[in-house]
Each structure stands twice: as C-alpha cells, then as structure tokens.
Simulated scan of single mutants.
Amino acid sequence: MSTVSAMSIEPVAEVTEKKPLKACCACPDTKKVRDTCIIEKGEENCTQLIDAHKDCMRALGFKI
C-alpha cells in the first residue's frame, strides 16, 4: 500500500467565472420572513416585508 503526501497533490484550479444569481436564490433572509408572514397573516398584512424583499432584489439588479 502506498501513501500519497500532501505535497504531491496538485491543487484544483479555482473557478473564476461566477454563475449569474437566480431570482429564486437571491435575498433568502427577506424571502423567508416575507413568505412566513404571508402564510400566517395574509399578503395584505405583510406589505413592509414584501417591499423590503423587493428592495433587496432590486439592489441585486433584478427588475421587479
């Protein structure tokens, strides 16, 4: 059985190209709070959280 030292392992090249952020994955914190509020209290009672999520999405470049 042979052993491989850490020095003989070549590092994996880093990916320099970023994938574009999908709308479903953007602003997870505001999205979760907004969704919970809508489920528990109804959309009409969560306008501030909805607006906060929209602001977050716009800040990331989404057109909402």
Rank of each mutant, 00 (worst) to 15 (best):
D55H: 07
K19S: 08
P20S: 10
M57V: 03
M1D: 06
T30C: 06
A26V: 04
C24E: 15
I9L: 09
A59W: 01
D29K: 06
L60M: 12
A59R: 10
C25W: 04
Q48A: 13
D29V: 09
R34E: 15
E44T: 09
A6W: 06
L49K: 10
R58N: 06
K54V: 15
S5F: 05
G42H: 03
C24M: 11
A52P: 01
L21S: 02
A23G: 00
N45E: 13
E14Q: 10
F62P: 02
E44Q: 06
A23D: 04
K41I: 00
I50F: 07
A23Y: 12
D29T: 04
K22R: 12
E10S: 15
K32C: 07
M1V: 08
R34S: 09
A59Q: 04
K54E: 13
S8W: 05
D35N: 15
V12K: 09
M1C: 07
V33W: 02
E10F: 09
K41F: 07
V15P: 03
I38W: 00
R34I: 01
D51I: 12
L21K: 10
M57Q: 13
E10A: 15
T36G: 13
A59E: 13
K41V: 01
V33P: 00
V12M: 12
A6E: 13
P20E: 09
T3S: 09
G61N: 08
P20M: 06
V33D: 08
A59G: 14
E43M: 11
A23F: 13
K19C: 01
K54H: 13
A6P: 05
F62H: 09
E10W: 02
V15R: 08
M7S: 14
C27G: 03
S5D: 14
V4D: 06
T16G: 13
L21N: 05
Q48M: 10
E14A: 14
S2K: 07
T36Q: 09
D35P: 01
K32L: 11
Q48I: 09
E44H: 02
K32P: 00
E17S: 09
C46R: 02
K32D: 07
M1H: 11
F62L: 07
I38L: 04
C56H: 03
L49G: 02
C24R: 14
P20Q: 03
E44D: 11
T36Y: 08
S8Y: 03
V33K: 12
M57W: 00
E14R: 11
E14I: 12
I50E: 06
D35L: 08
C24H: 05
A23T: 00
P11Q: 04
A52T: 11
M7I: 05
H53E: 11
C24D: 11
L21A: 08
K54C: 09
C46H: 05
V4P: 00
C37R: 01
R34T: 10
T3Q: 08
S5L: 11
I39G: 01
K18G: 01
K63L: 12
T16N: 05
E44R: 07
T16I: 06
K18H: 12
T30I: 01
D51L: 15
A6H: 07
K19A: 13
I50T: 12
I64F: 15
T3R: 04
D51A: 15
V4I: 14
E14H: 07
C56A: 08
E40Y: 04
T36V: 02
E14P: 03
S5Y: 07
Q48D: 15
C46Y: 02
A59F: 04
R58M: 08
I9Q: 06
P20Y: 03
T36R: 10
A13N: 06
S5G: 14
A59N: 14
C24T: 11
